[in-house]
Write a protein that binds this DNA or RNA. Structure first.
Lengths: 147, 147
DNA sequence: ATGGCTGCAAAAGTTTTGCACTTCT
DNA sequence: AGAAGTGCAAAACTTTTGCAGCCAT
């Protein structure tokens, strides 16, 4: 199971070809974001990272999130809050359902968004590079509780 | 053309039934947001409003945007920025295309998002109350310039 | 009149930046 | 060696809040 080391190599190459370096801090941040717990905000990344490297500074987290976003290794999400959330760039495009009752965020894959993308590209002459879909509502659990 | 006065009445009723009042400031803010220039952020609303009522305070703008959002008269958008944007709640659901070249924001109506909504509701047991779709890319003009 | 609303000022929260020093490559 | 990256502290921005007085109903 050399998977983790392999993806690190892939990422190192991605960085390198942009003249960027793989520092300990950057690797740590990348690792945390790739770790599975998604939709972290900058501060959550910071706190998790400090568990492993207490000297890390918050500005480094912000700077790296920017860098990794530009590089396309990390995706920035804009939920209904005054700060951003981040997730590892997923292999398959997926979108987010946000429960207004319990705050839970569910990911959904949706074949339709691809079609939507094409339709809009054609209709407006746009070259679409990214799609972000957020739906808000109430999850099954909260619907029962509420009524 | 009593349209404007009519919609103001409608809004006054919406407020009233929630125990809220139609103040001069609130009417002003509503008017600015309904005015057509959309996707304003709080500060832009503030600046436009002050042209007509210089004593208005920024906190009042923020408080009213919150109130009107809860009431459903105004919609909050979350673009790729560290602050929010607002638009009048539209009659027809529409979504946003953001050009990464020139920053222009284009609105699109999209029949597919309705279908997407249903599909997801069924699949995940969610009751969907709102959908926000953002696409980023390059508009026709920027595509030509770029290449 | 009374409860919502406003303006002001201050606080809280998020993100960026300048600078001297360190560390990858 | 040299450019990119880091930590720290301070600044810049966005948004929220407490409070005394005001105003719509």
């Amino acid at each position: 199971m050399a998977t983790k080391k392999q993806t690190l190599q892939t990422k190192r190459r991605a960085l390198s070809s942009a003249g960027l370096r793989m520092t300990r801090q950057r690797a740590l941040i990348l690792d945390i974001i790739s770790q599975g717990h998604e939709h972290l905000d900058a501060d959550e990344v910071y706190r998790l990272a400090r568990e492993r490297k207490p000297s890390l500074s918050l500005s480094t987290v912000y700077r790296n999130l920017q860098t990794l976003k530009k590089l396309g290794l990390v995706k920035e999400l804009h939920f209904d809050e005054s700060h951003h959330h981040y997730e590892a760039k997923p292999s398959a495009e997926h979108h987010h359902l946000i429960c207004l009752g319990c705050g839970k965020i569910v990911e959904v894959e949706c074949g339709l968004s691809h079609k939507m993308r094409q339709e809009i590209a054609r209709e407006k002459g746009f070259e679409v590079t990214g799609v972000e879909v957020h739906m808000t509502g109430y999850c099954a659990k909260c619907r029962q509780k509420g009524k």
